[in-house]
Protein backbone atom coordinates (compact mmCIF):
# COMPACT_ATOMS: atom_id res chain seq x y z
CA UNK A 1 0.00 0.00 0.00
CA UNK A 2 1.46 3.34 -0.97
CA UNK A 3 1.54 5.74 1.91
CA UNK A 4 1.28 9.47 1.64
CA UNK A 5 4.59 10.73 3.02
CA UNK A 6 5.84 14.29 3.31
CA UNK A 7 8.02 13.47 0.32
CA UNK A 8 4.97 12.40 -1.69
CA UNK A 9 3.18 15.60 -0.75
CA UNK A 10 6.18 17.59 -1.93
CA UNK A 11 6.13 15.86 -5.32
CA UNK A 12 2.41 16.35 -5.75
CA UNK A 13 2.86 20.06 -5.35
CA UNK A 14 6.19 20.61 -7.06
CA UNK A 15 4.80 20.69 -10.57
CA UNK A 16 2.44 23.48 -9.70
CA UNK A 17 4.90 25.45 -7.70
CA UNK A 18 5.61 28.32 -10.04
CA UNK A 19 2.10 28.83 -11.19
CA UNK A 20 0.96 28.82 -7.59
CA UNK A 21 3.55 31.19 -6.27
CA UNK A 22 2.44 33.69 -8.87
CA UNK A 23 -1.24 33.36 -8.13
CA UNK A 24 -0.90 33.37 -4.39
CA UNK A 25 1.34 36.35 -4.19
CA UNK A 26 -0.88 38.58 -6.26
CA UNK A 27 -3.99 37.20 -4.58
CA UNK A 28 -5.72 36.63 -7.89
CA UNK A 29 -7.12 33.26 -6.93
CA UNK A 30 -9.44 34.66 -4.25
CA UNK A 31 -10.01 34.03 -0.56
CA UNK A 32 -12.69 32.33 1.51
CA UNK A 33 -12.69 33.37 5.18
CA UNK A 34 -14.78 31.33 7.60
CA UNK A 35 -15.75 32.57 11.07
CA UNK A 36 -14.82 29.85 13.50
CA UNK A 37 -15.20 31.28 16.96
CA UNK A 38 -17.00 29.26 19.61
CA UNK A 39 -20.38 30.23 18.21
CA UNK A 40 -19.38 29.43 14.62
CA UNK A 41 -18.04 26.03 15.62
CA UNK A 42 -21.22 25.26 17.53
CA UNK A 43 -23.21 26.22 14.43
CA UNK A 44 -21.28 23.84 12.16
CA UNK A 45 -18.49 26.05 10.81
CA UNK A 46 -16.03 23.13 10.90
CA UNK A 47 -18.13 21.20 8.42
CA UNK A 48 -18.54 24.33 6.31
CA UNK A 49 -14.77 24.81 6.22
CA UNK A 50 -14.25 21.23 5.21
CA UNK A 51 -16.90 21.44 2.50
CA UNK A 52 -15.15 24.47 0.95
CA UNK A 53 -11.73 22.81 1.06
CA UNK A 54 -12.95 19.67 -0.65
CA UNK A 55 -15.18 21.41 -3.20
CA UNK A 56 -12.44 23.85 -4.25
CA UNK A 57 -9.59 21.33 -4.24
CA UNK A 58 -11.59 19.10 -6.58
CA UNK A 59 -12.06 21.92 -9.07
CA UNK A 60 -9.14 22.69 -11.39
CA UNK A 61 -10.10 26.34 -11.68
CA UNK A 62 -10.59 26.85 -7.95
CA UNK A 63 -8.00 24.74 -6.22
CA UNK A 64 -5.71 27.68 -5.59
CA UNK A 65 -8.36 29.73 -3.85
CA UNK A 66 -7.21 30.41 -0.27
CA UNK A 67 -9.33 29.04 2.55
CA UNK A 68 -8.79 30.65 5.93
CA UNK A 69 -10.52 30.95 9.23
CA UNK A 70 -10.90 33.63 11.80
CA UNK A 71 -12.36 33.84 15.28
CA UNK A 72 -15.73 35.28 16.07
CA UNK A 73 -16.89 37.88 13.54
CA UNK A 74 -19.33 39.28 16.08
CA UNK A 75 -22.37 37.99 14.23
CA UNK A 76 -23.14 34.97 16.38
CA UNK A 77 -26.81 34.92 15.35
CA UNK A 78 -25.86 34.30 11.73
CA UNK A 79 -23.13 31.68 12.09
CA UNK A 80 -21.57 30.06 10.26
CA UNK A 81 -20.44 33.24 8.52
CA UNK A 82 -18.28 33.21 5.40
CA UNK A 83 -16.57 36.14 3.72
CA UNK A 84 -15.78 35.68 0.04
CA UNK A 85 -13.32 37.83 -1.84
CA UNK A 86 -13.05 36.78 -5.47
CA UNK A 87 -11.15 38.78 -8.06
CA UNK A 88 -13.37 41.20 -9.91
CA UNK A 89 -16.23 40.91 -7.42
CA UNK A 90 -17.16 42.83 -4.30
CA UNK A 91 -16.22 41.21 -1.01
CA UNK A 92 -19.37 39.62 0.36
CA UNK A 93 -20.29 38.31 3.80
CA UNK A 94 -22.67 35.38 3.78
CA UNK A 95 -24.51 34.12 6.86
CA UNK A 96 -25.87 30.76 7.98
CA UNK A 97 -23.69 28.88 5.53
CA UNK A 98 -23.90 25.23 6.53
CA UNK A 99 -21.97 22.57 4.65
CA UNK A 100 -25.10 21.83 2.56
CA UNK A 101 -25.11 25.42 1.33
CA UNK A 102 -21.53 25.33 0.08
CA UNK A 103 -22.15 23.79 -3.39
CA UNK A 104 -24.60 26.56 -4.27
CA UNK A 105 -22.14 29.29 -3.26
CA UNK A 106 -19.31 27.62 -5.17
CA UNK A 107 -21.46 27.21 -8.25
CA UNK A 108 -23.08 30.65 -8.25
CA UNK A 109 -20.60 33.01 -6.65
CA UNK A 110 -17.25 31.44 -7.45
CA UNK A 111 -17.96 29.93 -10.84
CA UNK A 112 -20.70 32.10 -12.33
CA UNK A 113 -19.84 35.31 -10.51
CA UNK A 114 -23.39 35.81 -9.24
CA UNK A 115 -24.22 36.67 -5.63
CA UNK A 116 -26.42 34.28 -3.67
CA UNK A 117 -28.62 37.15 -2.48
CA UNK A 118 -30.71 35.30 0.06
CA UNK A 119 -27.62 34.51 2.14
CA UNK A 120 -25.84 37.83 1.86
CA UNK A 121 -25.38 39.55 5.22
CA UNK A 122 -23.32 42.45 4.06
CA UNK A 123 -21.59 43.80 1.04
CA UNK A 124 -19.71 47.02 0.69
CA UNK A 125 -22.20 49.42 -0.82
CA UNK A 126 -21.13 53.04 -0.83
CA UNK A 127 -24.19 54.27 1.05
CA UNK A 128 -23.71 51.65 3.75
CA UNK A 129 -20.05 52.33 4.29
CA UNK A 130 -20.48 56.03 5.01
CA UNK A 131 -21.53 56.92 8.54
CA UNK A 132 -25.13 57.96 8.52
CA UNK A 133 -26.08 61.51 9.30
CA UNK A 134 -29.14 61.68 11.47
Amino acid sequence: MSKLTLEALRKLREAKRNEMARRESDGTAGTILIGMGTCGIAAGARETFDAFVEALAAHPGLKHVAVRQTGCMGLCYAEPTVEIAMPGMPTVLYGRVKAEGVPQIVEEHLLKGRLVSERVLDKPAVDLMKPRKS
Partner: peptide
Amino acid sequence: EALQGLGDAEALALARRY
Protein backbone atom coordinates in the same frame (compact mmCIF):
# COMPACT_ATOMS: atom_id res chain seq x y z
CA GLU B 1 7.36 23.35 3.58
CA ALA B 2 6.34 20.11 1.89
CA LEU B 3 3.18 21.69 0.46
CA GLN B 4 4.80 25.01 -0.54
CA GLY B 5 2.47 26.89 1.75
CA LEU B 6 -0.84 26.04 3.35
CA GLY B 7 -2.84 28.84 1.85
CA ASP B 8 -4.90 27.24 -0.85
CA ALA B 9 -7.62 24.62 -0.96
CA GLU B 10 -5.50 22.02 -2.72
CA ALA B 11 -2.78 22.17 -0.05
CA LEU B 12 -5.35 21.87 2.70
CA ALA B 13 -7.08 18.90 1.06
CA LEU B 14 -3.70 17.15 0.72
CA ALA B 15 -2.77 17.97 4.32
CA ARG B 16 -6.05 16.50 5.47
CA ARG B 17 -5.42 13.26 3.58
CA TYR B 18 -1.91 13.06 4.98
